[in-house]
Design a protein around this nucleic acid. Structure first.
Lengths: 263, 263
DNA sequence: TTCGGTCGTTCAGAAGACCGAATGACGTTG
DNA sequence: CAACGTCATTCGGTCTTCTGAACGACCGAA
């Protein structure tokens, strides 16, 4: 009956339709950042306007979406902010990482990140800036392709090549001229990373930025920490220095986490 | 038919049940911070386990909730983080406030906040710490009762007493011995605030913390900025000094916003 | 003003989700 | 070792939601 329609849309039969749509609305408004009208969202989601209307009413009543003064464009509501930060507060790694990140930021004087692998992407969980705490929130929650980041490569290097091949979307997306997209070259980089103990990103997601990253948890976690800086402040010798500092910080944080896990 | 049941639960007939439940799950996991089992959530929400099960499956498939390693306790997922921060990025006030908050933090040397009135509570949208950027995210997204915060009183002082009475939940909740809970005393404080142009909070939500706040937008916004410090660094003379700095910052930010609104 | 286009909104038939009881799996207690 | 507690999970009947087309409101253009 409906198996044809379901198969055509690629949906699993075990999903609650309205529930999935609520989440899709939040994701749509989240990545866009901009405000969208009901008709625009219905088109983007391939959902009838009337169905979406009822859902948006429910979301608006609970302040999960906002209407702009004209009453025609929807945006993320205030309630969404609370749950986002709640994820960070409830997370052991993020909670424990604070002092370690502070110390690493102070030691290196450069930007420091904590990231987590989520599917094919890396999500920033925490950030320390090198100078002032400017625009600090702009990065937390942001996603970057794992294959083009130091954080992603540090985590992926813990897996078998077969596992890596299964986890990523091929072909690898190119973000800058330096992005490694060749499968063999990429897997070779991971092998090198595994031996060395730390990963590098040499302008692969942002031109002119070099980054050194180390995975946490001794080979089984999804998290990593990194230190990034412009190439002008990151020559090869400096990379080695920073790598040692990041490795020590990662080790110290991993020890804290292991202790927490054992109690 | 169902009007009896609906009326008994106090629900509007124009809500999509599953959609509301998705949001309720997120709010429940968000405020708790802790992880909950399916049965616990079903009990807390007064919803059948079997219905909630299907919804949680949908949410888990999209990574909006996570299962802990034992597979029995749910927590907020990674996708929730993205939308939370997206609210801040898509918000004009928060985006423009960055440099102003930085300047105010540097000038006063104390903690600086940007907050927004949402119902009876104030939500922190941005924060600048006095020393290092420690635990910066712990406060953004948090809610405090408006009547016990400088930010809340600054915004509320823009409304008529009748409007204030309508907006708040009475009786006012007591958070510390200094919290003003008497209706007349509270309204008198707001009148005073209105004349003076800035609001004070003298240990009303956190013992030993004094705070000075000014509303943005020239009498029609829901936002305010504030500067907080321990009483030991905030005697009456210092309050006057800080109030002037906060007022100037608020004025400068309001001007920026007005310019943006006009284009 | 009138027209064409957009928007959000409504409504009754059709499709799917919700519910409660029963099941299987697991860890704990007697 | 066994009985119990709690847990997530399944299943079919009933009721709710979803759907698509039609409606009324609105804005800008002619």
């Amino acid at each position: 009956m409906e198996s044809v329609a379901e198969a055509a849309r690629g949906r699993k039969p075990e999903e609650v339709k309205s529930a999935a749509r609520v989440l899709e609305v939040l994701e749509l408004l989240g990545v866009q950042g901009a405000r969208l009208s009901l008709a625009e969202m219905a088109a983007a989601m391939a959902v009838p306007k009337s169905s979406l209307h009822a859902i948006l009413r429910t979301m608006e009543a609970r302040r999960w979406v906002d209407l702009d003064p004209s009453g025609t464009r929807y945006g993320i509501g205030l309630k969404a902010l609370l749950t986002g930060t709640a994820y960070l507060e409830g997370d052991d790694v993020t909670s424990l990482a604070g002092p370690v990140l502070d110390a690493l930021a102070e030691e290196t004087g450069e930007a420091v990140h904590l990231g987590r692998l989520d599917g094919t992407h890396v999500v920033y969980l925490a950030k320390r800036e090198s100078r002032h705490a400017l625009r600090m929130y702009s990065a937390v929650g942001r996603r970057l392709p794992a294959h083009a980041t130091g954080l992603g490569k540090a985590v992926l290097s813990q897996f078998d090549p077969a596992e890596v091949q299964r986890r990523l979307d091929w072909p690898l997306e190119r973000l800058t001229p330096s992005t490694v997209t060749d499968p063999d070259a990429f897997l070779a980089q991971l092998a090198e990373t595994r031996l060395r103990g730390w990963a590098v990103d040499d302008g692969e997601n942002s031109v002119d930025i070099r980054c050194v990253a180390v995975a946490l948890g001794g080979g089984q976690g999804m998290d990593a920490i990194s230190c990034s800086a412009p190439k002008s402040r990151m020559d090869d010798a400096r990379v080695e220095e920073v790598a040692q500092a990041v490795t020590e910080a990662a080790h110290s944080l991993s020890t804290l986490l292991k202790r927490l896990g054992q109690h």
